[in-house]
Amino acid sequence: MGVAQNPTTTLPRAGVAQGQKTGSFGVVTTTLDQAVNWGRTRAMWPMLFGLACCAIEMMATQASHYDMSRFGMELMRASPRQSDLMIVAGRVSRKMAPVLRRLYDQMPAPKWVIAMGDCASCGGIFNNYAILQGVDEIVPVDVYVAGCPPRPEQLLHGIMTLHEKVMQEKVFTR
């Protein structure tokens, strides 16, 4: 029982199936900005680290039910050298702050930062001496995701918002 005997796969789909078989897609014109930004957004690898309870929601976003790999985030990279996106999921203590900044410095440009949750955005409920009052004190943040913790839909919306922002970037001026 091969796949080819399935009648739905044997039908040619309009505009796609023929080109896929032969490798000849024809000609598409676009701008360099759009092409590069398309590549950047559709394969934006986040860094694998979590700091607090928001990381649980980040894991849920990554897992099969919400499935961040739908948006090109196939896998979290355990090394900053291979990451494009830093999702700061949780509160950052002042002892952790130099470590976080060092990780950010080790990421290759272009790189983006999402501050996930209230603690990473502004300190949240931890308005005291030990917690950084927003991770934007040490790294430049592109998107803030509110919530305590944000649900996976909210994080996905933050990632979509970041994609929109990246699509507006000029490649040679950043």
């Binding site: 502004c122 300190g123 308005n127 005291n128 001496y129 927003g134 934007d136």
Partner: peptide, 27 residues
Amino acid sequence: DYPLGYEEVQFSFNYDRVKDQKPSPRE
């Protein structure tokens, strides 16, 4: 007797003042 390290909460009436005091990173 250790201070709690409270940071002033940012509202619309003190937005600019709090923003000026807040540290920000280099790119």
